[in-house]
Design a protein around this nucleic acid. Structure first.
Lengths: 142, 142
DNA sequence: ATTATTGCTTGCAAATTGAAAGTAATTATA
DNA sequence: TATAATTACTTTCAATTTGCAAGCAATAAT
């Protein structure tokens, strides 16, 4: 899966990588929901088909957003983990959720609205920072 | 084009609307490049096909991100303008460009790197605010 | 009156997505 | 230790989406 860029615009180029239905959902699952194995992603509530999942994970690895590893001693289960390049997507995800929270409830009234949304509303920089920190701690643990 | 949401997750729901190759590119063209007519979009460097453009503009209008108007006295040229819901996407675009600037240059070395990128790097909140202000002034002028 | 422009739509081929089933390599269990 | 279950995929094929090219109707300019 070789990547082509439509032009030299930084906005468009980001969307050449991220502009699709699944890429950022997978990254969200890793960052927010702690998912890390093929099975984790395949069983998530968004219900991605396994062939698509396989292709997207390959692509994400190719462009350096995730790395594929294994836990020492386990030869079976692959772990997919965010790289620095992947972790740097946190602010984009936070802005997406912020926009949903404030502008998508009319179209989609059942969007979750718990205490984590409250803390997002309260201070999104802190929210992003906390996500980042939590993920780095998880990485240190693996 | 009726919209279905995959689940109640705010991240995923934003991507149900925005997660595609063209939607945010069109919004970027409006916000950053001042494009507002069908012709403007069709002639942009990203080279969107007119049938796709037509479908995406319809969708954006349906979900309330843009409105379709005409300038008084002109019965021919349609104007597509961002609503508040659309303008609220500015921070997402700014974060996309920031990520491109810092993490996409290895894969795509010819991404533009002029003085506007400099000012984005310097203070992205101010950058977003300036874009927002400029667009509101344009709206006031129409 | 004629030509050009704008904003589309239509037709069709190519690419992408998705559901379902199948496979191969581990790992757990009787 | 044989058997079953789990994990990580791949394959097949149908359906949907994308994209190119051409066409068309309404308005505006000459």
């Amino acid at each position: 899966m070789r990547q082509d860029f439509r032009c030299d615009c930084p906005f468009t180029s980001a969307l050449d990588i991220l502009g699709d239905k699944w890429i950022l959902v997978i990254i969200k699952q890793m960052l927010i929901e702690g998912k890390e194995t093929f099975k984790d992603f395949a069983e998530s509530e968004e219900a991605i088909a396994t062939n698509i999942l396989s292709a997207k994970l390959k692509f994400l690895e190719e462009v350096g957003i995730i790395i594929k590893t294994k836990r020492p001693g386990n030869k079976k289960t692959n772990l997919y983990l965010l790289t620095e390049k992947g972790l740097a997507l946190t602010p984009i995800l936070v802005e997406l959720a912020t926009w949903s929270d404030s502008h998508l409830r009319d179209l989609h009234p059942t969007i979750v609205n718990g205490e984590s949304m409250e803390s997002l509303r309260n201070d999104k920089t802190a929210f992003a920072k906390a996500l980042d920190k939590k993920y780095r701690e998880k990485l240190a643990g693996n």
